[in-house]
């Protein structure tokens, strides 16, 4: 795990030593993958772009070019605007918590004891479960009247909590589920970064009588700043595409309060079967994702701190 960040190194092709000769048959090494790449990634990407300018009847298989109409309809669509807002809200609810909580857990568990190892195992465990299992668990937790949360709140005399049915709380409830599901990843990324900090720095700080807060702010966080930025971007990319939890826990409701952009694409494409319109929405999502991915590329290729 200590080695993880270095896999990103040396990616420029020019750095590779070259053999002079090559033959056509040797192209068979890259041919299978390139074929799959073109057919199932590049081609659909282009097709989606074209479809976004079409009115599409998936069942009749007929397409008609309608220019920018899908985009015009999209940007004036109240539900799409709401989906964009909900998606940003969801990112704001989850990403800072992922970063702060992930770092907190990593700081506490960055030691070689059996209990720290056990807790690391525990925090990462939910990460390997599929979204359907996670939502099955958390829908049961949030169940009105008989859910775990209600059971717990009964002790304090708070009654009739139905978070997923409440437009003011449903998105936050899904955010909590998401954090429970995904906290393991930021935790291990921070742990890997913390282990890279040389111990001598801390010894020096101790000699200077630095307080724990001073040590955290002036030594630990600056030393792992690159990882903090990286985790933030990784989480923004991941949470921006939130879909499964929402589709399974609220299906975008109540009152459209949890509909995300991917959920919108899914419903437009596969519930209303308006493929052109859905493609237009997917293009908007794609552009935002490209910007975020470019940012990630830029950060992860930078070796020095900033």
């Amino acid at each position: 795990m200590t080695d993880m960040t270095s896999t990103a190194a040396g990616m420029t092709a020019a750095a590779t030593p070259r053999l002079k000769s090559w033959s056509w048959t040797e192209l068979l090494f890259v041919a299978p993958y390139l074929l799959l790449y073109v057919v199932f990634l590049v081609y659909p990407l282009g097709l989606g772009f074209i479809m976004s300018f079409q009115y599409f009847d998936l069942f009749a298989g007929q397409a008609e070019f309608i220019g920018l109409e899908n985009y015009q309809q999209l940007f004036s669509d109240r539900i799409f605007q709401g989906a964009v807002v909900n998606t940003f809200k969801f990112v704001i609810f989850t990403v800072p918590t992922f970063v702060a909580l992930g770092l907190l857990i990593a700081l506490a568990l960055n030691r070689q004891t059996w209990w720290a190892a056990t807790l690391r195992t525990l925090f990462f465990a939910s990460n390997v479960l599929s979204v359907t299992i996670v939502t099955l668990i958390w829908r049961a937790v949030y169940l009105p009247q008989k859910g775990l949360l209600q059971n717990f709140l009964d002790v304090f005399g708070i009654q009739n909590i139905a978070l997923l049915q409440d437009p003011n709380w449903a998105l936050q409830a899904i955010a909590v589920t998401t954090i429970w599901w995904g906290i393991g990843l930021p935790m291990v990324l921070f742990l890997a970064a913390l282990q890279q900090i040389p111990g001598e720095i801390y010894e020096a700080a101790e000699l200077d009588n630095a307080s724990p807060w001073q040590t955290l702010w002036h030594i630990t966080i600056p030393s792992i700043w690159r990882t903090v930025v990286l985790v933030t971007i990784i989480q923004i990319i991941a949470q921006f595409q939130v879909f499964g939890q929402i589709n399974l826990m609220t299906a975008g409701g109540p009152n459209n309060s949890t509909r995300s952009m991917v959920q919108f694409v899914y419903e437009a494409g596969f519930r209303q079967w308006t493929a052109g319109f859905a493609s237009a929405a997917a293009q908007v999502l794609f552009v935002i994702m490209i910007v975020a991915a470019g940012l990630q590329f830029w950060v992860s290729r930078r070796k020095q701190e900033f």
């Binding site: 990407l45 479809m51 493929a275």
Partner: peptide
């Protein structure tokens, strides 16, 4: 950088 969700409709 291409998210699965961006190509799901054409796929």
């Amino acid at each position: 950088a291409i998210p699965q969700h961006a190509v799901i409709v054409p796929l």
